[in-house]
Design a protein around this nucleic acid. Structure first.
Length: 122
DNA sequence: TTCCTGACTCCAG
DNA sequence: CCTGGAGCCAGGA
């Protein structure tokens, strides 16, 4: 297996890139009009991942050319906890509404019906 | 090196 | 029912 090279030339270590790719791949597969939560993705990818790591990966999803629909990932309550990390605080809600998901008071309306479980659907 | 923080979640009071 | 603390993994100071 590869060991970490003496130089940190690579901006992103391969091990982490794999982790990001896994998270992004799941998020990209979230159907339009559906949402999921951090814990579900973490669990789907397997043990060793925690919900916070998913959010951490989302933070790195900005500026990627295949856009990551991070707005479809909310917390377990369906609340848009990450909206403040978007380009603008209102962008997350706007993107969700564009997907056909109603958002009121920073929460996804009918979150239970909108919920998409990668373990179940994928 | 240690300590703190975080786009979370669960359990206890 | 609502609030607070602990667990979780990784990165930054």
């Amino acid at each position: 297996m590869k060991k970490n090279p003496p130089t940190k030339a690579a901006s992103v270590p391969s091990s982490q890139r794999n982790f990001f790719e896994d998270v992004f791949d799941v998020v990209r597969q979230i159907p339009k009009g559906r949402v999921t939560n951090y814990g579900a993705i973490a669990k789907y990818l397997g043990s060793g991942l925690s919900s916070r790591m998913v959010g951490w990966a989302m933070n790195a999803s900005h500026g990627l050319h295949p856009p990551i629909p991070a707005q479809r990932v909310v917390n377990r309550n369906g609340m848009l906890t990450g909206k403040n990390h978007f380009q603008t605080p209102t962008l997350m809600q706007e993107l969700l509404e564009k997907d056909g998901v109603a958002v009121i008071n920073d929460k996804v309306v009918e979150f239970t019906q909108r919920y998409w479980d990668p373990e179940k659907e994928l």
